[in-house]
Every structure is written in structure tokens, then in C-alpha cells.
Design a protein around this nucleic acid. Structure first.
Lengths: 203, 203
DNA sequence: GAATGATTTGACCATCTGGTCAAACTCACG
DNA sequence: CGTGAGTTTGACCAGATGGTCAAATCATTC
């Protein structure tokens, strides 16, 4: 089989092209809404050729999802308990927003999965995601106890950051329809930063 | 045809059952991910029977979407320019949050549509939605100019309300995975209210 | 440049799915 | 009850879709 040992130059190139095409199509239409043919056209390869590199449509989707959650949580992972609380949180917000802006397809792939009940990543959520959030919430609670940031529900604080930042990639049609702008993120950064400054400034 | 004049008792009952089933299935799997068979089973009717009441799967989806945007915007419509600014905004937030809690399926139907580029409601968005938001933004700007609430980007203020409130219904799997709770809205209301009080209190 | 393994593809298949239709059944009403 | 309209369904169809396969083509190495 092609996938067994030391990938060749062609294998690397084609697998990458397929995953990119799959990301494009899955993020735009959801798993069920995407067809292998669409992905093949997008990748510039024939359908049987795709299935030479991936055993099934499922496998392509799984390959995309596999690394995604990890990458997606990296910005939160970098929240430093030793840093200045307000700076750390604002930096996290900025990283998250930048990620949404730079990788809207990944964001939508994830959103599609979540809206439909996350059938394929449910376990990862209640294991890895929960563990990381729990850990970071402890840090936030520490900062609040020390009076270095205002006291708010720490879990909802994190949810709010996810929600505000991803809104601009996941629902960008809506934002664009209202704002009539090219870049849905325009002005979002300032607004969100102001929001968290006012919410979290110690009394 | 059945749909022509004065619907009978049976027609009313069955059409309602079909739409409820369709909402259940479409909101959980998206348009393409839903099958007429699933809807039929959910509704307790046979597939040809569904197609006796609706000419196509598309028609069922359209019937659901038709009223949805209007209903969805009602909370914003009620924002009263004559009211006390902070009260009005907080009341809007509460109405929106309650709507997400009470009608999570409708919210997800809408989210599914938006994430995938809103192919079927794009026009309604840039017409009706935009018009309403523009109107209400004028009110917000007035309040800000009078110094009755703090000055923030009014469009992003509205986006933030949408984003924060709908997050709990659209992505409730994620919230539940982290919080380990029955009700994903638990605590959300207090958090969001605090957030807008601090963001918008005049300087 | 021949041999070997990697890559590509046209043709094909089974299943799923939206939709049709004629026949059967049920109901309301005179 | 009988009758006609309203309702229901089993059987069926056409097209889409995920996936297979043997044969052909290409790359690499000796």
C-alpha cells in the first residue's frame, strides 16, 4: 500500500492537495453535504485517485479533524499563569481572533461538526478540551481571588471568547450582509478588546 | 390538491407534525444531511405521505425557514427608542437568550444555514436583516451621543449579543462537554448581563 | 532500457435517496 | 349507507454517490 512506509514526493504532494480540497468542501457543505467528486475536482485529481490515498470519505474527514482540535486550542494553551492577567487574557483573545481570521475554513469545519452534535469528536471534547479548560479556569480563578481582574464566571468568560471570536468566521455571511464590507473582522478586534478591558478591569 | 382551500383538521395536524419532524431532523443534520425518510419516521408518517403534503424536501425546508428569520428578529424589533437605554439593551439580551433556550432547534437550523453560506436566505439577510439592524444602530448611536451608554461600535455590539446568546444553543455540545451540566444556559444569563452592564455603563 | 513498484483511471457496482403513481383506504356528509 | 373527496401507501424509478478493480501509465533504480 502507498501509505505504509516513507512517503514519496508524489504522496506528500497529493495527500496535501486532497486534504486542502477536502477542507474547502467539508467546511462549506458539512460532511454529508460534501461529495467525493467535489473534493476530487477541487483537488484536480480523479475520484478513484483520492481513494487510493484515503480509504474513504470518512478517513479524509477524520484526518482533517484529527489535528484540528489540538491546533485550535493552542492559543488557550499559551495562557501563562506567570504573566500579567489582563495582558494574558487580551493576548489570548487576539490569538484566537487571528486564528479565526487566518483559518476560517478550519473554524467552519469545526462549527459544522459542533452544530450537528459533534458525533465524531465528542470524546475529545469531554476529555482533552475539558481538561485544558479546567486547568486554565483555575488560573483565572486565582487571578480573580487576588483581585487582579474582576470576578466573573470563569467558564463563561472562556465561552464568551470562543463565541465572540469565531462568530466572525463561522457566520461571516451574516456579518457581511449587515456591514456591507469585504473584511468581516473589520473593527471586531477593537470592539472585543474594549469589551474585555471593561469587563475585567479590577474594581 | 390538498393545499388549495380551507385546510381540514387532518391537514392541519399532519402539516404541523411534518414541520416539527423536519425541524428536528434538519436542525440536527443540516439540509443535505437530512433525509425525507428520517423526517417521515420522526413524524410517524410514510414518505409518500409527506410528499402529499409538501411537494419536495426543499419545500419543507423553505416552509421552516420562511417564518424563522422574522421570528428570530422579533426581540430586536422590540428595542424601544423611548426606553431607558441600559434597560432596553439588557431586556433585548434577555429576550434573545430566552429565545435561544426555548427554541434551540430553530437556532441550530439557522446556524446550519449560516455556516454553510446561507444559500437560501442570503437575500433576506442583506435586505430585511440589514434594514432592521441599521435602524436599531441609529438608536444606539443616539444613546451614545447623549452619553447615556458608553461609546462602542454599535454594529459589533449587536453582533456580540447574537454571538453570545446563540452560542449556548448552537454549540451546546461543547458547553456541556466542558461544564458537565444538564442546562448549558446555567449561569450564562448572569454572566452576559454583567458583561453588558460593565461594557455599556456610561463613564 | 528493463524490471519493479507506485500511481492513475475508465468502467463498473450496490446502495441510498428524492420523488412518482395508481390503487386502496378513510372520512364527512347527505 | 353510499358517494365523492380527501388521505395513505406499496411498488417502483432515475439519478446521485461512495467505493471497487483490473488494466494502463509513470517513476525509479539497477
Amino acid at each position: 500500500m502507498a501509505q505504509d512506509r516513507a512517503p514519496t514526493r508524489i504522496q506528500r504532494k497529493n495527500r496535501a492537495a486532497i486534504l486542502d480540497a477536502a477542507l474547502e468542501v467539508f467546511s462549506a457543505h458539512g460532511f454529508r453535504g460534501a461529495t467525493v467528486d467535489q473534493i476530487a475536482v477541487q483537488a484536480g485529481l480523479s475520484k478513484p485517485n483520492l481513494l487510493y490515498y484515503f480509504p474513504s470519505k470518512e478517513a479524509m474527514h477524520a484526518a482533517l479533524l484529527e489535528g484540528l482540535l489540538d491546533t485550535w486550542l493552542d492559543p488557550l494553551r499559551d495562557l501563562d499563569p506567570a504573566g500579567e492577567p489582563m495582558d494574558e487574557i487580551l493576548a489570548y483573545v487576539r490569538r484566537k481572533l487571528q486564528m479565526s481570521r487566518e483559518f476560517p475554513r478550519e473554524s467552519r469545519l469545526f462549527a459544522n461538526e459542533l452544530v450537528q452534535g459533534a458525533p465524531r469528536i465528542h470524546d475529545a471534547l469531554s476529555r482533552d478540551l475539558k481538561a485544558l479548560v479546567d486547568e486554565k479556569v483555575t488560573i483565572l480563578e486565582g487571578w480573580m481571588a487576588q483581585g487582579r481582574i474582576a470576578r466573573v464566571h470563569p467558564y463563561h468568560l472562556i465561552f464568551s471568547i470562543w463565541s465572540l471570536t469565531q462568530h466572525y468566521s463561522d457566520f461571516d455571511v451574516q456579518v457581511r450582509a449587515v456591514l456591507d464590507t469585504e473584511d468581516p473582522f473589520d473593527g471586531a478586534s477593537d470592539f472585543i478588546e474594549t469589551l474585555y478591558r471593561r469587563l475585567l478591569s479590577p474594581p
